[in-house]
Design a protein around this nucleic acid. Structure first.
Lengths: 201, 201, 201, 201
DNA sequence: GATTAATCGAGACGGTACGTCAAGTCTTGAT
DNA sequence: ATCAAGACTTGACGTACCGTCTCGATTAATC
């Protein structure tokens, strides 16, 4: 999988005109816009290039394929700095972080994620990257909150934390991608109170 | 959305050679086979036509597009007669039906469903059909089992049945489509025992 | 090559519904009309069938192919009864018959003939039929007039009659099909007086 | 009608990769070959593309249609440098140039020309181009020889030169396209001696 | 300051699939 | 057996997109 900028400290000195970093930005922006408008399937490299007023070669110099472009673009959307709430109440923190995720996923990142799901079974690299970026971070954050609850004695020591984290993510993704219903704060609260907390005793 | 055979009792007399129903069958079979081999993205109408020894026009006479063909084909896969278990133990029934769903979704139908998810946001008709076929039936079956449990007093009267049914579907879909982990019977049992039953008291 | 009506005195008695002869007429009329409107290339069997309110099978029961239909249809246009003029003056008769041919060829028959020319090299049967119908009759009529002139002593005994007849036909076809200029009576007269008569002394 | 290469001195600067002129050549060569093998009707763009190892888009970038491709290709065949004979004897020159034309038209160019004739009535642009390329040059060359004969006093001053030139072309085209007889040198000589020279006194 | 080499936008290139259309055959119910 | 209607297979059509390539023109680091 290609990356937009070579980050290894190569001993080879770079001769010639260096890449214009502003093109990276313009291309990723264009990709997100086109993706949001027409979806993954109907997104064409020509359209992205045209929107960014770039040549197609400029795209392929940075990313190996349409899929690669989209994965990289979406990853950057996801890898933002989420301030993990720590109010002293794990239940409250859980509601907080899931509200945050829900809100975030109702934006372009959610649409992008959904567009990629259909490609996962036949694109192993994509699947790996997708799980590493979209799923892993969310999961670890939720798990840390759950663990904090166990440590403080608020949650049962023998509660299936992994399963709870998975159920939290599953509920959000199901609504987002399958039923298409909105991820309102009220719904998140009900999910936590009546769906997740019972699993934690 | 096109349907392969007009079923309404139309007052218009049917003139000309009627559609060859065996072609419907052959085309749907070919579509499933090709889909299973190469996935949705790489499935081509030419390939389906060739496999069914049919002309492309014969496909387009029945379905408007590749998507339409796949939706219809998959819907028929899903709408099978699931014998709803009734052992007297709602918990057992729940495990049974979810095991059944899980097994079924690990076959071609599951792959097909996943392939369609990415198209939902930009294809309202597809979304409607998808939810009506893939989701609604599963949901109603689960709900009927839950209700039986409430009626028999085994489940709490105030339990959030809708939410439980949603969580059951969400868990399965999340594993199937997002994490890609297998839907083993053991996992289903754990899901029911530690994820769903706690929500029912 | 098929003919529209079986003319051989077959001993086989005809069972079942006999062919509707009025359909022959309707189909030929439709063929001429469509041909005149869009030309040979763009003429479709569906269009002819639709115009004649007939089924395609009804056409193919009578003619083997599109080409066959057109050849047969055009032949009937050409094989009309031309009253060969005989005024006592062979030169006058020549002008008369060529004026007649010219006028006739500016109608649908001329368009049809032109449409067929492009097909001749790769359709030997068509070529044979074309020459037998479109060319042979015209030629024999002209030749008979020329011979009459020789017999009466008005034309030279050693004149190349075949060549003259060919030049007459060539001139008309060239204008009709190649240059597209009109075949006016004045032009025909000039052709005869300054082109053909000098060849006859 | 499209032309393969823009030749006007356009003020617009040429951006992007320029057309590969060698593809023009390869495509025209392929077109002539396929045309010679199967004729105009059976010539397919796919066949031409395959023979030239080109994509279909590369053809359609240069020519609007099959017809356009063939017209352009044939025009180049026709527009060769014919050395107009000048032996001092206009009659001899006339025989020479008509022998040359005849020989040339029995090759691929003649077949191509014939294929196009049937399209002329319904394709005004084609007709114009056809007349400008196939007919005009031939005609002017013949006329120049005739004029030379008039100037030298060998041909009558009041001879209908235009008509003679037209008859010459008509005779050749008629044999080539209509009767299909061969354009032998003997026949050309007879045409000149007994058909054309008598018109010139 | 001149040279060098990789960049840039633009768009042509071979290839593949698309969805449409026509030719000629076959199948229905009705006459 | 005929008729109109229209479904059927086959195969070409002209378009669109992918990923590569080639052009003239920048642009920065090296010489």
């Amino acid at each position: 999988m290609a990356t937009a900028t070579q980050s290894e400290g190569s001993p080879v000195i770079n001769r010639g005109r260096p890449r214009d970093a502003s093109r990276d930005e313009a291309l990723r922006t264009a990709a997100v816009e086109v993706m949001a408008e027409v979806g993954y399937r109907a997104l064409t490299m020509d359209a992205v290039a045209a929107r960014a007023k770039a040549g197609k070669a400029t795209i392929y110099r940075r990313w190996e394929s349409k899929l690669d472009l989209i994965i990289d673009t979406c990853s950057r959307l996801v890898n933002r700095n989420v301030p993990v709430p720590d109010t002293g109440s794990p239940a409250k923190d859980l509601r907080g972080i899931l509200r945050d995720f829900s809100g975030f996923l109702q934006g372009p990142a959610g649409k992008a994620a959904q567009a990629l799901v259909g490609e996962l079974p036949h694109e192993p690299e994509l699947a790996t990257a997708f799980r590493a970026t979209f799923l892993a971070h969310q999961r670890s954050v939720v798990l840390s909150i759950l663990q904090r609850g166990v440590d403080s004695g608020e949650f049962d020591r023998s509660a299936p934390l992994e399963l709870v984290a998975e159920q939290a993510a599953a509920a959000i993704c199901y609504r987002l991608m399958l039923t298409g219903e909105s991820l309102s704060d009220e719904w998140v609260d009900e999910l936590v109170d009546r769906g997740l907390l019972p699993m934690l005793r």
